[in-house]
Computed example of a mutant assay.
Amino acid sequence: MPNLSRRLLWPLAILLLVVGRSALASGELYYLGQPIPDIQRAWTSEDYQKLIDALQALDKTQANALPRRSGEFTGPIYQRMVSEDNFRPQMNIYAPLELRQNEAREVLFKLKELMRLYFDFRAAMQPYGAEALGLMSYSLREQAILFNLTVEFWMTLAQSEQRNPVRLKGMQEAKAAASMLTSSALDYLGLTAQFERQDLVLYSAELSKQMPELFVHLPGEVRGQMLARVQQFAEQHPYPEVRGNMHDLLPVLQNIQADVQRQLAAPVKGAAAPPTLDLSAPKE
């Protein structure tokens, strides 16, 4: 049997991807011999796990085999990974809130697993730079959805339950996870030696869209730190396009910060007004 060059393997791969549904009794799609989820529908956490299993197997045996963001044949697979359609089941208000919250949490965990596949901490230049950055910005969106669902669930609890130490610890852990992810997302902007310029420029534009929704949920101290870092990038990043995107993002975050501070300073509705100090002279 003649040896097939890598160039010929890609058409073969997409052929398996397209005809797999009709050719196989199980209805599964295959990518380079590994079963993957249907890319024509929204993915669940189980679908992400199936993809992770396939890509982990490929990554051990084939170099440069992971789906590319703009790949001629593999692009549709990657685009399904980061499709907005995947969020719709989590945002379906007719589904049980707790189930949606758990699903968002599981998907976020799977996205982190994919990040480990796409990001090579030992590489001087990232082999999947565009894909790793795309997954990071997509993870920010998932984290924001998870936090929105967490807050929505929190509001369904009685005040006594909200003060429960276990509940409070859970909320603190959620804020800590969101803070860590946001900080890591900004770290990537500074890795100019590891990522291509055009990839960082696109990433900074995506970041400017994703960050405000998550920023509002961060602890006050962390919001201040994020503002300082965004301002630093807006002033000092070596790429003018990135500076421009961060310059556009900065006032949006500043307005959110000011609005949150105003709300925290406002008196709680229904609370008794503090007694006024009577400075009048005592009656004789």
Results as ranks from 00 to 15, higher is better:
Gln162Val: 02
Gly129Pro: 01
Leu135Ala: 08
Asp199Arg: 07
Ala130Asp: 07
Ala95Asn: 08
Pro212Ser: 02
Glu142Arg: 14
Ala258Pro: 03
Met246Arg: 07
Leu55Asn: 06
Gln40Pro: 00
Gln225Ser: 10
Gly244Lys: 03
Glu213Asn: 12
Arg197Glu: 14
Gly33Asn: 09
Ser26Gly: 14
Ala281Leu: 11
Asn255Gly: 05
Leu227Glu: 02
Gln40Thr: 13
Phe233Ser: 03
Ser70Ala: 13
Pro76Phe: 01
Leu117Val: 12
Met226Leu: 13
Asp248Gly: 07
Ser184Phe: 14
Asn255Ser: 13
Ser45Asn: 09
Ile256Tyr: 03
Asp59Glu: 13
Gln126Pro: 04
Glu72Ile: 14
Pro219Asp: 01
Ala272Val: 15
Phe153Cys: 05
Phe121Cys: 10
Thr44Glu: 00
Pro37Glu: 00
Glu152Pro: 02
Ile145Val: 12
Gln261Ser: 11
His237Trp: 05
Ala158Leu: 04
Glu235Val: 14
Leu32Ala: 10
Leu253Arg: 02
Phe233Met: 10
Glu113Trp: 04
Asp120Ile: 07
Met226Phe: 01
Asp199Leu: 02
Pro240Ser: 14
Met246Lys: 07
Ala63Asp: 15
Ser70Phe: 12
Thr74Leu: 03
Leu111Val: 04
Leu17Tyr: 09
Arg243Cys: 03
Ser83Lys: 07
Gln159Pro: 05
Asn245Ser: 11
Gln62His: 15
Met211Lys: 04
Arg100Val: 04
Gly33His: 10
Arg41Ala: 08
Asp53Cys: 08
Val260Ala: 06
Glu152Tyr: 07
Gly190Trp: 03
Arg7Leu: 14
Gly224Thr: 05
Ser83Tyr: 06
Thr150Glu: 00
Val151Trp: 02
Glu206Gly: 08
Pro165Arg: 08
Arg21Met: 07
Asp47Tyr: 01
Gln257Asn: 15
Val242Leu: 05
Met91Ser: 12
Asn148Ala: 07
Gln210Asn: 13
Met91Leu: 15
Asn92Ser: 11
Glu142Thr: 08
Ser26Pro: 01
